[in-house]
Structure formats: C-alpha cells, structure tokens
Amino acid sequence: MIKVNTEDYPWHAGMTVRALLDEKLFTFRHIIVRVNGEFVPEEDYVSTMIQDGDDVMVLHLMAGG
C-alpha cells in the first residue's frame, strides 16, 4: 500500500510514477510530483520507481478558473 495525496492506494511491483499517474487518470499537465518529499522532474516519471509504503504527492496546480 502507498499513500497518494494522503489516501491509501494499492501498490504493485514495477509501479513507476508514470504508471501511477495513468492509473489514477491524473491527466492534467500542470502538476508537481513528490515521492517521500523529493521532487520528481517530468522527464524522470518513466524511470522513477515507487516502492511499497511510499508517500506520493501529486499537486495539481490549478487554482484558477
């Protein structure tokens, strides 16, 4: 199990940041990803592995409308 934006989410082996964003349907482009507090740049989404127990923040940056 991992945390995604403070809520439990099931973890599976081989889960990358990219895969998590796709699973969660986080399609908004304007986001900031942090894994255990560490910023992950967009170019590293595919190569960054998420481990069981990680705390992932996906901040959507729209405060607009």
């Binding site: 403070t6 809520e7 923040m57 996906v58 959507h60 729209m62 405060a63 607009g64 409308g65």
Partner: peptide, 18 residues
C-alpha cells in the same frame, strides 16, 4: 461565480486542505 475562489484541485484532488 468562481472569480473569488477555485479550490477544487487543492481540496478534492490534492487533499491539501483537509
């Protein structure tokens, strides 16, 4: 009108303001 506040992502998706 949403010109005062648009907090949906902060609240519902990011869970920044629990």
């Amino acid at each position: 009108q949403h010109d005062e506040a648009w907090l949906i992502f902060m609240d519902m998706v990011n869970k920044q303001i629990p």
